[in-house]
Amino acid sequence: MAAGGDHGSPDSYRSPLASRYASPEMCFVFSDRYKFRTWRQLWLWLAEAEQTLGLPITDEQIQEMKSNLENIDFKMAAEEEKRLRHDVMAHVHTFGHCCPKAAGIIHLGATSCYVGDNTDLIILRNALDLLLPKLARVISRLADFAKERASLPTLGFTHFQPAQLTTVGKRCCLWIQDLCMDLQNLKRVRDDLRFRGVKGTTGTQASFLQLFEGDDHKVEQLDKMVTEKAGFKRAFIITGQTYTRKVDIEVLSVLASLGASVHKICTDIRLLANLKEMEEPFEKQQIGSSAMPYKRNPMRSERCCSLARHLMTLVMDPLQTASVQWFERTLDDSANRRICLAEAFLTADTILNTLQNISEGLVVYPKVIERRIRQELPFMATENIIMAMVKAGGSRQDCHEKIRVLSQQAASVVKQEGGDNDLIERIQVDAYFSPIHSQLDHLLDPSSFTGRASQQVQRFLEEEVYPLLKPYESVMKVKAELCL
């Protein structure tokens, strides 16, 4: 049975990233139509530049190519590739079939990587351009969430054990800070992308030097003109047959890092959902379990974690691919890159769409948070109580021993009897502590235990987050809708 299948058929496997999760716009960027249309555009740009620099290419040939950029006979191309065992030459023939007058000058002087690699770089750039505003929107939604809850005390956790208090907004800023680093890295790697350009079979530009009869300047002009037509500021000066596969490492490393950030955020949300302090959106008709109707599973956060793990592992592909590119190139890269580049971007696209949807509907339960604080705060307040007693004339050592005994009794009630923490009640009825009984409410005010959390939130948002989001103001209103 021949390899390949009808990918629109229910009898043929289709990647869930495309069929179930990723956005239509990201799927289109990695589609065959987008790819092969870009090949034709690159052939047109090459012909236009070659004509401008004096090669015998007519206006009629150029116009014929322009008129057929979208006229792609995919069936013919597939048949040609089956016959020739070469995808680029299959599309040269297919393009030439609908451009008979231009057929002889299509791909003039070029090698397969002229269309293959340059198209990949265009796709990487455009895919990054799709991700950047999506990530900015996630940051914006979380920034709104953090600002609104900047002063809401909550129990902090280290080692997932109760620690000092923080605020809900401050905790959210930990998430935002990681995503801001990801946004900066995505922008950097996007701006650092260079075009492969017009380089020939081993990167020496020998074929173009021959076409222009040894004119170095025209060869350099050709490279520059096509690079500018493709919208790049610069091209690699040095290439082998391909652009260095280190570029793929750079791009997928940034995406993998984004995956790590999203995994951490969504894990926190899942843990908070278990504590009943916070939940992701839950639709009115949504079913959490087929057997347990009360369940409210954090399905979206779980999906993000599941896909983020996949995204983090994909960076190993370009690392290994770059390491086995012998001399000017081997074909070890080809099949692998067809999979890992598309999957990385479709996965990143999915987790950003999902995280935006989550961040637009996060639900906080202040009463649950308050109750958990009441359970733990008495123990945390013991040092403040000791200091207040010393100020009232008591002995630190005597007070410490009193607190120690009462704390152990209260802990026994919590752990052995399943009761509430009654340390404060014990202190309130103990005559030894009568000098500070009137101060206990103040000493137990949760806001006095959150330090500068709310001020940190305000400063972080104003100095770091809002300036970073400013270039994306025009796209901030787009909502994230999930079908599944």
Rank of each mutant, 00 (worst) to 15 (best):
S289W: 00
N384A: 15
A146G: 06
R309M: 10
S19T: 00
V478L: 14
F345V: 10
L17W: 15
K415L: 06
K479R: 14
S253F: 10
D349C: 06
G96Y: 03
E425G: 10
A260G: 10
P298L: 03
G197P: 00
M389Q: 09
E277L: 03
M65G: 02
R309A: 05
D117N: 01
G231R: 09
K170P: 01
A410H: 07
A388R: 06
L44F: 05
V29C: 10
T267D: 00
E148Q: 12
L209C: 11
T154F: 06
A260L: 01
Q409M: 10
L252C: 14
Q320L: 10
E360W: 08
E464P: 02
F232Q: 03
L142F: 12
G203P: 01
F236G: 02
Q177C: 13
G5L: 08
E279R: 01
K470S: 14
H400M: 04
L346Q: 09
Q286D: 00
I424A: 15
G116M: 04
I57W: 03
Q408P: 04
L258G: 03
R337Q: 05
R234S: 14
K229S: 12
K284E: 10
I351E: 01
L55P: 04
N118V: 01
Q455E: 13
S301F: 02
P162T: 04
Q63V: 10
A103M: 12
H442V: 15
C399F: 06
F282S: 13
T158L: 01
S23K: 13
T354F: 06
H159P: 00
V363T: 05
L69P: 04
C27D: 15
C304K: 03
S253L: 10
F460S: 02
R371L: 00
T111K: 03
P378W: 02
L444S: 01
T52Q: 13
L258W: 15
L352Q: 05
V429C: 15
A411C: 13
R426H: 05
Q63T: 11
D32N: 15
S140V: 15
G156Y: 00
I238W: 00
G200F: 00
T354I: 14
Q456V: 03
F282D: 06
L132W: 14
D398M: 14
I72N: 08
T38I: 13
C172L: 05
L331A: 03
D178A: 03
A102Q: 01
E250W: 05
N68I: 05
G169E: 01
R137T: 15
D420S: 05
A77N: 11
I358F: 09
Q164M: 13
A3V: 12
C113P: 04
A308M: 05
V247A: 12
G197H: 02
D178G: 03
L443D: 00
A453M: 02
M312N: 03
A291L: 02
H97Q: 12
R194N: 06
Q409R: 10
G361A: 14
D223S: 05
A47Y: 02
K187I: 12
E277Q: 06
I265L: 15
S290R: 02
